[in-house]
Computed example of a mutant assay.
Amino acid sequence: MSFARVRALVVVGLLGVLALAFVVTAIVRDSQGNAGTAAGCPDGWPLADLTLHEPKDVKINVLNATDEGGRAGAVADDFRNRKFQVQKVGNAPKGVPNVAVLRYGPKAVGSAHLLQAYFLNNAKWDYDEKRTDDVVDVILGNNFQQLATTTEVNQSLGDAGPPEAPKGACPSPAAK
């Protein structure tokens, strides 16, 4: 082996060792190790579950706030066909002008994010930090027409990005 080749191998080896040293230093001195977790969360703030659940793991109540009778039952059947766990079907006070309203608490943030996609990101958020269950109330409004198709849901989820903790809540330390 020629001297030039040995010298080149030594230089490449030193550069590799230097790069490895920089990577190890960056990992060891990382000051953002707790980013996105409950560490540093103010006392009393609820932990929001930001896990984007599969439909089979999402519990919902479907409530009709439209002038059309029986709407909640038909939409509940649509959700059941999409593998959601429909808990209750009923009526809500009329006069919701939106497509829908999603009422949920800290344990259902990820579930509400998924359901928002079924309304093409046009449902109104109604977060209640004192709510303790993991059920989302889907209140159908007067502008509701139909649930989105699977392709539309996937596109809406992509447009919306990952779930974020609502104001006054902290992300839970680990997604299940």
Rank of each mutant, 00 (worst) to 15 (best):
F119Y: 08
S172C: 00
A165R: 07
A160F: 01
D67T: 14
S2F: 01
T51M: 01
L9Y: 12
A148P: 05
V10P: 03
Y118K: 04
A48K: 11
G141I: 03
V10S: 04
A76H: 05
Q145S: 14
A123H: 08
V24K: 05
V24Y: 05
D134T: 02
A117S: 15
A8P: 00
V11T: 07
P106L: 03
V17D: 05
A4K: 09
V89N: 01
V75S: 05
V109S: 03
D137I: 01
V153Y: 09
L14D: 03
K59Y: 11
E164N: 04
D78W: 03
L14N: 03
A76M: 05
V96F: 10
A4P: 00
V58P: 02
D159R: 14
A4V: 11
G13T: 09
Q87W: 00
D134R: 09
A48S: 15
G16L: 14
K56D: 09
S111G: 14
E164V: 15
D133F: 01
A174Y: 06
A169C: 08
R80K: 15
P106H: 08
A48Y: 06
A169W: 11
G33T: 05
P171A: 08
K88F: 06
Y127P: 02
E152P: 01
Q32D: 09
D77A: 14
D30T: 02
G36K: 12
G40Q: 06
L14A: 14
A123L: 11
A74T: 15
K88V: 13
Q145F: 03
N81T: 01
D159H: 02
V23G: 01
A19S: 13
I27E: 13
P55H: 10
L140P: 06
R5M: 12
G33M: 03
A160D: 08
L52A: 15
F144G: 02
V101D: 06
L15A: 15
A169P: 06
P46D: 08
R7E: 04
D128G: 12
Q85T: 11
G33N: 05
A117C: 03
V12R: 12
P46E: 14
V11Y: 10
L114H: 09
K94N: 11
R5V: 12
P42Y: 04
F79V: 08
L102C: 06
D77N: 13
V153I: 09
P93E: 15
I27N: 11
N98P: 00
S2R: 09
P55Y: 10
N98M: 04
A72F: 05
R131H: 03
R82F: 02
L18I: 12
S31H: 10
E68R: 14
V101Q: 14
V23P: 00
A100S: 04
A92N: 03
